[in-house]
């Protein structure tokens, strides 16, 4: 069966750590950095569990700062 794999990139300097993408993700892929911050002092989002991502774009749609890009492939 073909499996859909996804991945996201987060523009960590643009991210404000609002946590909305983490809440919107149906597969619990994203999380905020616990200690690391960007230049503005925000705990930016990152892929905590990259293997779970299905590329559904939910995180990117709700991101207020348009800092998430989504990639998707069908694995054969």
């Amino acid at each position: 069966m073909a499996k859909i794999r996804g991945a996201v990139t987060v523009n960590s300097e643009r991210c404000k750590g609002c946590n909305l993408c983490v809440v919107a993700c149906p597969c619990d892929v994203l999380d905020l950095m616990k200690k690391e911050v960007n230049n503005r002092g925000y705990h930016f989002a990152y892929m905590a569990a990259p293997e779970k991502c299905i590329g559904c774009q939910s995180c990117a749609l709700v991101c207020p700062d348009a800092c998430i890009e989504v990639y998707r492939v069908v694995e054969k």
Partner: peptide, 25 residues
């Protein structure tokens, strides 16, 4: 493989909105 990206009409300038503000969306 890219299926979603920042629209090219949206500038790279940092938005002044508070984190999580609906204005950005």
């Amino acid at each position: 493989n890219r299926v979603y990206k920042k629209p090219s009409l949206l500038n790279d300038s940092h938005m002044h909105y508070c984190p999580g503000c609906s204005h950005g969306v």
